[in-house]
Design a protein around this nucleic acid. Sequence first.
DNA 1: TCTGGGGTCCTAGGACCC
DNA 2: TCTGGGGTCCTAGGACCC
Length: 423
Amino acid sequence: MPEPIALIDCNNFYVSCERVFDQRLLGIPVVVLSNNDGCAIARSEEAKVLGIKMGEPVHLFRDKVERHGIKILSSNYTLYGDMSRRVVAALHAFSPSLEVYSIDETFVDMTGFGSRMVPHAAAMRDAVRTLTGIPTCVGIGPTKTMAKLANHAAKKNPVFGGVCDMMEKGVADFVMRRIEVGEVWGVGSRTEAKLASQGVRTVSDLRDMPMALARKVGTVVLERTVAELQGVRCLDIEDVEPQRKGMAVTRSPGVPITDLDTMCRAITAHATRAAEKLRNHDLVAGTLTVFYHTNPHRPDRPQRHASRSLALKPMSSNTFDLVEAALRGVRSSWRSDKPYGFTKAGVILDDLLKPDEAPRMLFEPLKPRKAQLMNALDQVNDRFGKKTLVLASEGFDRRWHMKADMRTPRYTTRISDLPVLRV
DNA sequence: TCTGGGGTCCTAGGACCC
DNA sequence: TCTGGGGTCCTAGGACCC
């Protein structure tokens, strides 16, 4: 049996972050909305009980909001990102090997804890709770897939008291027979439907299905999942961050974009942000794709999906290079044959490399981009706040900005937003 | 009427994740 | 009227090579 892996996962993370700073949110139904205040992406237990589904558009449950006094909040990613960092900082004391899997989940290598595993996991939960105020659950298993499943069980079944250890075969069997296959990490709705037609409904059905059939139904990915459910480790803890392959900045404007000028301002802002992200990761990009499209939920209106990919030569992370390419893409694809209203636009970067790995040009550009200028730009915006310095083509007209009418303060990252204590 | 075998590389699209 | 944003991996099929 492989050494144990734990997955620690924050309960209703975004809602929990909000509750740390506003006690009035405790005990009542709370929902955090996606960007642009579109749909529910985090729900308190009370909101789940009321039947609010993950990803449900807010206009479809507006009646429940009124009727049950649900508290609705815009998402505050600055706050959640900072709280996530604090949670991970608390976990470093518990294992030398961690993999931060997402904003609210971390895999922890539990090698060497033997019979003291469950107390160790409980201590981890206590530390996170004490240091950040965030409640968590822990799942333990011989593989990542089983740790994920154990975590699900720890969340759903109070019998586990917040820590479920599936290293014991009895526990694993108990859990797998009671959970539907769609809950397994890597089994989405498509695969679930295909499995159902083969009579595979519970996790134990999946664990016991023939490998060859698993491969036929869901390629090597599902085959690997079956092996992991049998306790055969296929996925290791990745404690060094792999180099990323792509990067995207996409947004839905608060009101549809109908004219080229506004689109150019929005795209300038997205390309600018993309360039900042590139420089933060110390990468350069070889390909830039710019796209924009109309609302696919409104087939009664003129529809258009536009997209242009451009090669960046030389590869670059320079704001001027990226904005120039992105605007070229917008202008060359723009059409005014119909009154389009674009509800999404973005910039995607691919072929990312470290600057010293990027191919050199045989003929260097006549006016080489200066790294110093970008450093200055980043430093000004770091010190005086985002968007202090922007390109002229972004302008100051913010009509295309996203909606976020119910966002809480950036309690932990803005001096002006610090909570005030009155005694 | 007859028309090989064995590769690589790239891209689009599907499926999944949080 | 209102439906998020940002990722990864795998496969099939076409283009191309000798």
